[in-house]
Amino acid sequence: MELDDLKQNWKQRDQQLDSVLKFHVKLLRDSRLGKAQGALRRLAILLSAGLVVDLVVLGASGSFLWTHAAQPRFLFIGLLIHACAIGLAASSLYQLIGIARLDYAAPVVRIQERLSTLRIARIRTWKWTLLLAPLLWLPILIALMQGFLDVDLFQHAALPWLVANFLFGVLVVAAGVWAGRKYSHRWHDANWWQKLLRDLAGSNLTVACDQLHEMQAYENLES
């Protein structure tokens, strides 16, 4: 067998296709082209709304830092929340710009590399958000109580209560990672749940990194 012989057959089939293919232009025109514009608008609104939320958190934590700079215990908590908010906002902005600049008409290898890079950024952000959320809720509660109600939880709540809440957060993170590693390959019908567990366990990140390396290697002559 020579591929060049089969190429002739392939070409003949292509010629046949002209007579048997029917592209339903009317269907595309009537219902889908309008929706394409709507979907783009929705995506832009969703991403922008996420960034606005990040910026509000950034502003609020900055304000908290400024007003409690003289109190070390609140300064530490404010810094922690502010650092997380900066990370989240930076990642959202990076993804927003990346998606806005994405041109599907660019060469395939380049776009697939960019898509893999964006996917890695999304998974990393999501993974760290999932991992830090159970640990951060306590500092956020302390900051909210102090910031809005002027209640100092360090004085009003018992130390064992604070420690127990922190340890509970650590346990939730550990249980999440364990469940992710153990069960992420199951529940094929529950896509979002499986995806969440795989993100948490890091397996989706590994796959995305492998894909990026594969794309980069493809450009090399020797690959």
């Binding site: 889908r32 082209l33 599907y104 008409a105």
Partner: peptide, 27 residues
């Protein structure tokens, strides 16, 4: 089809349509 439509406003006619279409379709 939808991605082609979204990208169409940026289509540069100096590039053959087939090349452009293949890029979008394969991506």
């Amino acid at each position: 089809s939808l991605q082609l439509w979204r990208s169409f406003p940026g289509y540069d006619p100096r590039l053959p349509f087939l090349t452009w279409m293949y890029r979008v379709a394969l991506n």
